[in-house]
């Protein structure tokens, strides 16, 4: 496994926490983003994710570099799953370790925001009566994000 990767199988979050855990870390934040059933009253049956894999892994690594530069002493690992995902499956995991907790929380949130901006991954929602590629989440009202 890699520190920044796109995977096609179920994600085990603990593996990514293990990557970032070090003796100097007093805090590890582990974020998992899951497939949600209901979005604004519309029921999702399942999701399908697609990625431009080599570029997506490069951009995940870039986010890690941005974080390690901006918050000294942090270490980051990120994985995103693609393919068909069912309700409650883990789509993304972000692990951040740092000497103190505040930084670990902040840096973790920064990572998910950046994923939604620059990482070439696309989500298709499949409903009971149709399907659609979702894009430009940043411009939608709150509630649309992960």
């Amino acid at each position: 496994m890699k520190t920044f990767e796109i995977v096609t199988e179920a994600i085990n979050p603990q593996l990514y926490a293990d990557i970032v855990l070090r003796p100097e870390a007093g805090a590890v934040t582990l974020f998992t983003g899951h497939v949600r059933e209901w979005t604004k009253g519309v029921r999702t049956l399942h999701l399908s994710y697609e990625a431009y894999v080599p570029m997506a892994e490069k951009k995940l690594a870039q986010i890690g570099e941005e974080i390690e530069e901006r918050w000294e002493g942090t270490k980051v690992a990120i994985a995103h799953r693609i393919g068909e995902l069912q309700i409650s499956d883990i789509a993304v995991v972000i692990a951040v370790s740092s000497p103190h907790r505040k930084t670990a929380y902040e840096a973790n949130e920064y990572a998910i925001e950046r994923i939604k901006e620059i990482v070439p991954i696309w989500k298709k929602e499949i409903w009971e009566d149709g399907e659609e590629w979702i894009g430009d989440q940043k411009k939608k009202p709150e509630g649309e994000l992960t």
Partner: peptide, 28 residues
């Protein structure tokens, strides 16, 4: 994206480049 990096409209393409059209992303 040209060769896996976001490109500017003024960037010049070279033989062998891999160009990807990236629709609005929706990971996470």
């Amino acid at each position: 994206a040209v060769n896996e990096e976001y490109a500017l409209p003024t960037d010049v393409l070279e033989a062998g480049d891999i160009v990807a059209f990236i629709p609005p992303v929706s990971g996470g």
